[in-house]
Design a protein around this nucleic acid. Structure first.
Lengths: 110, 110
DNA sequence: ATAAAAGGCAACCTTTCGGTTGCCTTTTTC
DNA sequence: GAAAAAGGCAACCGAAAGGTTGCCTTTTAT
């Protein structure tokens, strides 16, 4: 059945989550498949640990990362699904555009 | 030389621009290749013409649309380049992820 | 057993966003 | 040559975003 099930919202939320430099770099860092703690992700960031935490939660609400508390630290990991969704959304947009181009071409060459 | 040339900023700006429902729907509407006036785009939107105008300018700053003033109205049209950029950005992200998976698999199956 | 490391929580602040209203200019249309 | 249509400009407003600081809890290391 696959309920909407909270954890991968629509493309809008995903794009919004990607639309911030800090978040985008956190995500690309995590997309290497390794899992990282907040402290780790906070080094080389100029920002406070708290700020990073907030960004991570935004990413999490958008379904782009998931976290597990292990011992005293919580490990964050990349989740590929929403990116795939976003990608196919953009695919559809540019597909529509390509169609339009094709139609125009056909019209002109007639 | 290809100066940065204002008009297609990085992926962050593009994602930010896409991360709003109104903007996303304006863009998909325009991605059919047809050019539309602000008034036209404002119908069936509940929002004020001004609000729509602002959104269009955001899209324009992100390079996703371009406008030309023709007579008394300004026509907005879709610009495909930034979408392609964004798409390839996401491609790289998921490519990195896939690589990681592959490496992990190799390691495990050894 | 204490100290240090990692985090959660919450208050607070400033800037940006999304949106509205009012008014003025320019182009059309009749 | 008015009246209407399409927009631009600017002020203003409330809510959300991005960030900080302070303090308390839990886990780990010594």
């Amino acid at each position: 059945m696959s309920k909407p099930e909270l954890g991968d919202p629509g493309p809008v939320e995903v794009f919004a989550a990607l639309g911030d430099p800090t978040r985008l770099s956190l995500l690309t860092k995590l997309s290497d498949g390794q899992t990282r703690s907040i402290a780790t992700l906070s080094t080389d960031t100029k920002l406070t640990r708290q700020a990073v935490t907030k960004h991570l939660h935004v990413l999490e609400r958008a379904g782009l990362v998931a976290s597990v508390r292990v011992g005293r630290e919580s490990q964050f990991g990349y989740r590929p699904e929403p990116v795939a969704e976003a990608r196919s959304y953009l695919d559809r947009v540019s597909a529509q555009w390509d169609e339009a181009l094709t139609r125009l071409k056909a019209l002109v060459e007639r």
